[in-house]
Write a protein that binds this DNA or RNA. Structure first.
Length: 333
DNA sequence: GATTAGGATTAGT
DNA sequence: ACTAATCCTAATC
């Protein structure tokens, strides 16, 4: 297997330099090959409390290094002329590509094999970074926080910590950072992190580094864009995160359903046209909902009670042939 | 045992 | 006022 980490660390992505440290890259790589990229396993971090456990973050690395490993090997090893299949990742709905990405695909100077190979690698990198972007945006939406850590208040910091601890199955260390806002967090060195949390400070620091780098890239990409509010800039579709109103459960479920790449394992459409969906992992969906609403005690029992309130409001109902964990939007989009 | 249904009450906005 | 959270009993799968 080639080493995506080292190639990424060259730093040239989208024609600009991305300030990822070796640590954050190592973090990315360490988390490859997970079968459950968004699994929010119980925080029973007894023996696996070490930071080196296969944490769970970037689904793009799952794709690159597991499912699609075959073509990746081909690209990096032997077949420089092989067209990189980008469709796999671009079929999703969001038109949220940075303009710079497009310019990257032109202006190639075909010729030497080395250049071709480099180009393939760059395309792979583009894919990876694009997926990182997507995952971060998804997390932002889920947690209702800004993408740029510098904008976080202390509550946002706590949410991010909780979320990251979930992802990497870290022991809870939020208390060590309770007095910090995003700006403070961003200013902290890895050593500062380790001081506050000897056990997983490095992981947290590396993970934050990914977020910072991504925010920095977004900043670069959006130069020349119409000056929109940060919120609209983040989410191409106006959705719950922008309204200012608290999100409704049905909206939240819709959002999860819109991201099958991330949440397909816990909730999915059975019949999108009719609005029929199935909750595949009730506990997981409930945890996500609890995270979103800051309700750590949320469970499926309570979530489903809220869904049932929608029956008489005509928002959600049970489908004609009632099945367990299957519901139907009365007004499918 | 998990899910479903719905009543009652409380919390948060 | 309204939605959701919480807690509950009872029925069902």
């Amino acid at each position: 297997m080639s080493n995506p980490g080292s190639s990424l660390s060259e730093g040239t992505v989208y024609g600009s330099r991305i300030a990822m440290t070796e640590d954050s890259l190592a973090l990315l790589e360490r988390n490859r090959g997970s079968a459950e990229p968004w699994d929010l396993g119980e925080t029973k971090t007894s023996g696996e409390a070490q930071c080196g456990v296969p944490g769970l973050y970037l689904s793009c690395f799952d794709m690159l290094l597991t499912e699609d490993a075959t073509w990746l090997v081909k690209v990096s090893d032997a077949s420089p002329a092989l067209a990189v299949p980008m469709t796999r990742m671009e079929h999703e709905d969001e038109p949220e590509q940075c303009p710079v990405i497009d310019s990257q695909e032109q202006g190639l100077s075909p010729g030497l094999e080395g250049q071709e190979e480099e180009r393939s690698l760059e395309q792979v990198q583009s894919m990876v970074v694009g997926e990182v972007l997507k995952d971060i945006e998804t997390a932002c939406k889920l947690l209702n926080i800004a993408a740029d850590p510098i904008d976080w208040n202390s509550g946002n910091v706590q949410k991010w910590l909780l979320w990251t601890e979930h992802l990497y199955r870290l022991p809870h260390a939020g208390k060590a950072f309770h007095d910090l806002i995003g700006k403070d967090l961003c200013a902290m060195s890895e050593e500062d992190f380790r001081q506050r949390s000897p056990q997983c400070g490095d992981t947290l620091h590396a993970h934050l580094d990914i977020w910072k780098s991504t925010a920095w890239m977004k900043e670069r990409c959006s130069v020349g864009e119409t000056k929109t509010t940060g919120c609209e800039d983040l989410w191409s579709e106006a959705d719950s995160s922008c309204s200012g109103q608290p999100i409704h459960l049905w909206q939240f479920l819709r959002e999860l359903l819109r991201k099958p790449h991330n949440y397909g394992r816990c909730i999915r459409w059975l019949n999108k046209e009719k609005g029929i969906f199935k909750i595949e992992d009730s506990a997981h969906v409930a945890r996500l909902w609890g995270l979103r609403k800051n309700r750590p005690a949320m469970n499926y029992d309570k979530l489903s009670r809220s869904i049932r309130q929608y029956y008489k409001k005509g928002i959600i109902r049970k489908p004609d042939v009632s099945q367990r964990l299957v519901y139907q939007f009365v007004h499918p989009v």
